[in-house]
């Protein structure tokens, strides 16, 4: 039997909904764990990828410097990078802020907002600095595969993951291709 595959996952500017959907594969998780181990993932709370993993699943788009760094880290450490969910593919709901300037977003939240005290735009160096817009992943790194959906259904995720782990074609059959 071939050695087990390694999978890493993360959520950037997303809602963790894609990860919830991943957990929704239910008992197939056991089947998956037969074939692969999870490296860095919010599921097991491992914070850093050690070495190289076979498959990286990235949920969420890019909204700040931190998300860019994590994505770059994934690209460097994953043989195959998969963009998971609408936010990762298009920017998704967070990218609705792209209609407004960053200035007006921050002023609305931290200066003009109802009930704001000590009004100022947060400038602590520990806070990740926001990008001017929210971007999809494939504009910053090379993405190998895409799984659309908000979130992608458990069946869609299982289809792609099991295909990648076993070396089949990860293209979704029509019934599993959804953007909503």
């Amino acid at each position: 039997m071939a050695s087990k595959r390694k999978i890493a996952t993360c959520s950037l500017a997303g809602c963790f909904g894609c990860h919830m959907s991943l957990l929704d594969i239910d008992e197939r998780l056991l089947e998956l764990l037969e074939l692969a181990d999870f490296d860095r993932s919010p599921i097991n709370d491992i914070k850093e990828i050690k070495g190289i993993v076979d498959i990286g699943l990235v949920e969420g788009g890019l909204c700040n410097a931190e998300t860019v760094r994590v994505l770059q880290h994934f690209r460097e450490h994953c043989r195959v990078l998969v963009s998971v969910g609408e936010c990762a593919l298009t920017g998704g709901i967070p990218s609705m802020r792209n209609h407004l300037s960053l200035k007006s977003c921050l002023e609305e939240s931290y200066i003009r907002g109802v009930g704001v005290e000590n009004a100022h735009i947060p400038d602590d160096p520990e806070l990740p600095l926001l990008l001017d817009k929210v971007y999809p992943l494939h504009e910053v790194v090379k993405v190998d595969y895409y799984v659309p959906g908000c979130p992608p259904s458990a069946d869609a995720l299982w289809h792609v993951l099991s295909a990648l782990v076993t070396g089949r074609d990860p293209h979704l059959p029509p019934a599993l291709l959804k953007y909503d």
Binding site: K103, I121, P125, L129
Partner: peptide
């Protein structure tokens, strides 16, 4: 290699201006 579609560091410029930050983490 693949190069991003936009200038990453320039995409932080507006936030740098709004926060007055220029530390290492404020750049990409």
């Amino acid at each position: 290699d693949f190069v991003p579609a936009f200038d990453l560091d320039a995409a932080l410029q507006e936030a740098r201006q709004l926060t007055g930050r220029d530390d290492a983490m404020a750049h990409l």
